[in-house]
Design a protein around this nucleic acid. Structure first.
Lengths: 229, 229
DNA sequence: CGGCAGTTTGATCCCGGTCAAAATATGTGG
DNA sequence: CCACATATTTTGACCGGGATCAAACTGCCG
């Protein structure tokens, strides 16, 4: 395993209040792992024996229903903690974490969680903020699914992805990880067919541009309007 | 304000590990309040200056969209903490808490939160379990809304309510607080009309019995079947 | 007993799911 | 580098669940 540099963690909120030496200790206790796209980092129901930090890439948090339908709860951008079952008072992971792109993770055994919370100022606060933000996001999803039409939900979902992990290109802002129509449909509770139709229509109007597994937002403002009304 | 008895708090999870004297201290710092049905205990966006314990009754957690639609996120049964913005790293309440029935609450100023977490063993753990349970419930909602039909969602919503706060009657298990078709529709992302039609059909088949603002589940098993497929 | 809050029921319409099939990328092994 | 297998996307045709519109009905409270 390569020796990790302290500058990796120093700017990230959960660790930003810490001394160099503390960060060194934390890094020395971490395991680093690389995963290909589309791999499960952990699976719903598994005993939560480790917690994770996403160094690079994007994680998709999914749930699978008894009859095989897949639903995406949220996306986690790099720099955030995930698999933090401890912060929810759980001993098993509540959902499955799948790599949406090639990812780089750090992880620590659950047994260190208490140590982190007690010894490292700001760690607890920041993790609860993370939890709070995700609760907000889930709440938003529920409200949207209860009150909005598919077109609005898809528009908003794309905007959220682009805000969270967008990358500038000459054509517009592109979602920085591979994403299929099917993926979008699992985020919005619709079908890949409907997503395809919407994207085609939007592409015709110049709002988006898309290739296989790639979506670029050319006119965010118009999408906001679509999502807002 | 009436002097509160220690036996009120002693059996509740957040306080169950505590000494008599600690509970006394906690009670002496609490404000007790009674609210009529349909009153906002706090409102989304308000500065979270207090956190609450529901001693009696049921709280409905709602969000209101810019265009006035109301969505119910969850119901909180008596004995649970609510308005615990601190546990989510927030300084404002993320949603509005409305009394679904006459309610009795205790509350403490936010400034005591840290004290509770640090001084009272088990308090932190139990509150994070509460948060975890609510996250689970929200996740379930999202999955249901993404994959199930209205009939199934309504069936499950009723079963959830009955499990959480059901009361036995000769006719069956009744939801222990006043609830309208409109309320059910706001929990399931549908309209009061559709809920009414479903309840009428179920009543004809003897699955439920309902009066104005009252729903009784006569045949839970059949409802489970409806909700399951 | 008048009036409102809640419920029921009918008629109609349309969004978006389902079914079906073709078109277009991407990858793989020979 | 080509041919074939596979994954992703597109598009069309159809249909049905559930929303919407509209109106009547039923406690219930003052």
């Amino acid at each position: 395993m390569p020796k990790l540099d302290e500058s990796l963690l120093a700017p990230l909120p959960p660790f930003s209040h810490l001394e160099r030496s503390q960060i060194r200790t934390i890094l020395d206790q971490a395991s680093s792992e690389r995963h290909d796209e589309g791999v499960s980092v952990f699976t719903e129901g598994d005993v939560a024996d480790r917690f994770f930090l996403l160094l690079d890439g994007t994680i998709r948090v999914v749930k699978i229903t008894p009859d095989g339908d897949q639903v995406t709860s949220l996306h986690i951008p790099s720099g955030q903690l995930f698999g933090i079952a401890q912060a929810l008072g759980r001993t098993t992971y509540p959902a499955t974490a799948v790599s949406a792109s090639e990812v780089l993770t750090l992880s620590w055994p659950t047994s260190l969680w208490q140590t982190f919370v007690v010894d490292y100022p700001g760690f607890a606060t920041e993790t609860y903020k993370t939890v709070g933000a995700r609760v907000s996001e889930m709440n938003t999803r529920i409200v949207e699914m209860s009150t909005q039409h598919v077109e609005q939900r898809v528009a908003r979902a794309l905007l959220r992805l682009v805000n969270q992990s967008g990358r500038n290109t000459p054509e517009g802002i592109e979602i920085s990880f591979p994403i299929t129509r099917q993926d979008v449909s699992e985020m919005t509770g619709t079908t890949l067919h409907t997503v395809s139709r919407l994207l085609s229509a939007w592409e015709k109007d110049g709002l988006v541009a898309s290739r296989r597994k790639k979506i670029i937002i050319c006119d965010p403002h118009s999408l906001v309007v679509l999502g807002g009304a």
